[in-house]
Design a protein around this nucleic acid. Structure first.
Lengths: 361, 361
DNA sequence: GCCGAAAATGGTAGCGCTAACATGTAAGCG
DNA sequence: CGCTTACATGTTAGCGCTACCATTTTCGGC
């Protein structure tokens, strides 16, 4: 292991190596300007340029003007990868959600990114497909990217996920449900209470029996809590929770229709259905209409989420309204506050819900 | 968990210097393991560890086993920021879309991320709100992050955006429409042809007059092309395009209902409507039903996109089916292929469309 | 046992930026 | 007019990794 050879002059890795032999046609692709280029063109040090970029007030007006001029001329853009490495701040916020194709989640994400981008953060998005194991894989990968903060759907996560996040020491917001013991912060609403409230609404209207159509509960605390709320309301009414009145399925309109068909096959006597998502409720509603069942005359239907179509179907859907966009926005604000060094007063934010009584139940 | 100021309270920048005098109590937060830690623990050089991570075949089995053991014990995770800086590859693919809350776009994004993640890439998402200016801002910011590739909604972009992307020399996929001259690659379908085809379907069925309800065309080539297709089909039928038969609005169900109301106010004689999106069509359909108009008896309605509800409404919606998920997936595959050094045979991929004739028209 | 080729492993110089500290320089004051 | 103070700017040493090349070890064939 003689250093003799190692010390020999070696070609350098600068972008310039791409340029080809001297005398060749002028460079087609001039390498990206960096801080040093701007600095030397403006006759200042790199630090001064960096200050112009990140803390202009600290630089004399005349110097700043000159530097800004050069920046404009060269089209210089800071390299955020390098900045991230040097500053230990990536400017990246991750969100791990089950799927993108769900209007509730999509609106939360829209709120999140709308809150983040003006503060200079960007959204790194991962879909776990309703699997906490996949969620853990994504969280690990995102931590490798040195994300500054993270949003997670729901309040149920693998031990590995929780441990990694605790150890990482970054702000974490769980969203879309509520818990007394979040990893760090949480913004959502009580799925149990909301489901209980709307089921009680059906109880009060004296429908009997009341069925349940919901999403698969595996790795989905929101679905589980909604079913839980349904069962509590049923029991509180001194009724029994009957297994054949409960159908669990995937989360889309077609599945809602099929679930309704299954339910009617098993229990022709059913008089009301609480569907744990409006998509399911709308599917169920159409299935009833195809069978000539009057709503709510023959069967009452209640949904959950108040998606735009809920107010348009005939009869309009009785449902639960939750502040989707605001949840995402609030989550983003909490993350930004923390990252700006401001302390967040309430780590547990209950955004609430609201029963929207319409014609269907 | 009080990570309130965890990231700020960092007087010294070198983990080891935090350790204090030997013999002090063990650290609460051991600094993240890095390559060098793993290397010394395994008694090899950093390069060998790096090879185990990225090209295991190049390392002797016994060495590899030892290194992998240490990696497992220490929970080492590579720092992708540092890797990005050193290798000039970030592993980040950006997508700039108008909004997240649109089922067509959401499904494309789902396909995109599903194709990307298994190849080790992650999705950086930005919403431009149907503004090419905002799109340009996002593209610039993402380029600062040294993204490896990018997906853009639509084929219409600002000159600045195009220029930046050309100069950046990264693979670009435009999606959701088709063009003969993409920035780089494009995968989508002809919105003009699809709109023309379904309008012709209405013409053939002899509805007269045929109206149009669509999204605002500003900074939205898909909307503009769909209207264009409508107009061509109308003219091809030797009819006139009448301004008061065309309503443009925002893209949601409620707007569809309002647009239908406007249209009926202006032209009670309208016999058919082509809606440039199913959300609008569904809203229009309900508005008609509320007014007691029979569909398609009094008014025929056709939509675009074949969203799940289109097949469920009564009457079911005649519409255009496009391979949403597949478009995203294909876009992701094209980006990955390019980045893996494989050449992409067809830079312009027409994913096609299909008329779905149902009861509404 | 020697040789050459192939396989395995290592050393070093950055990638472009920022934190921390150092220095220079102008303003304020008795 | 020297001395403090605040402001403006510069210097240095990495952040954790990979590219490039160099070196060492292994091994089949003669």
């Amino acid at each position: 292991m003689s250093n003799e050879h190692a010390r020999r002059a070696r070609p350098v890795r600068h972008g310039l190596r791409l340029l080809g032999p001297i005398g060749a046609k002028p460079l087609a692709l001039p390498r990206r300007a960096r801080l040093a280029d701007v600095a030397s063109a403006a006759g200042v040090s790199t630090m001064t340029v960096a200050r112009v970029l990140r803390d202009p007030a600290k630089v004399a007006a005349s110097t700043r003007a000159r530097v800004e001029q050069v920046i404009r001329e060269t089209g210089y853009t800071p390299d955020l990868t390098a900045r991230g490495l040097a500053s230990n701040r990536s400017g990246l916020i991750a969100a791990v959600i089950p799927v993108l194709t769900n209007s509730l989640i999509a609106e939360i994400m829209q709120g999140l990114t709308d809150a983040l981008v003006p503060q200079g953060f960007h959204l790194l998005l991962g879909a776990s497909g309703f699997s906490v194991a996949e969620e853990e894989v994504l969280v690990r990968a995102f931590l490798s990217r040195r994300i500054d903060g993270i949003y997670l759907s729901g309040v149920e996560h693998s031990g590995g996920t929780v441990q990694m996040l605790r150890r990482a020491g970054i702000p974490v917001v769980e969203g879309g449900n509520i818990t007394a013991s979040p990893i760090d912060m949480v913004v959502g609403f009580s799925n149990v209470e909301a489901a209980r409230a709307i089921t009680r609404h059906l109880v009060v209207k004296a429908y009997t029996p009341i069925a349940y159509i919901g999403a698969f509960p595996k790795d989905n605390d929101r679905a589980r809590d909604r079913r839980d709320g349904y069962e509590r309301a049923i029991r509180a009414a001194r009724r029994r929770v009957e297994a054949d009145l409960c159908v669990e399925t995937t989360l889309d309109i077609d599945s809602g229709a099929r679930a309704m068909a299954t339910l009617l096959g098993r229990r022709p006597d059913v008089r009301a259905v609480f569907c744990s998502a409006d998509a399911l409720a709308v599917g169920a509603l159409y299935e009833c209409q195809r069978r000539g069942l009057a709503i709510p005359g023959d069967i009452a239907i209640a949904g959950f989420d108040d998606i735009p179509i809920a107010g348009q179907v005939v009869p309009a859907l009785t449902t639960i309204r939750v502040p989707r966009y605001e949840i995402g926005q609030k989550a983003g604000k909490m993350l930004c506050d923390r990252l700006a060094g401001r302390s967040v007063r309430r780590r547990i934010v209950d955004a609430g819900f609201e029963i929207v009584p319409r014609a269907s139940a």
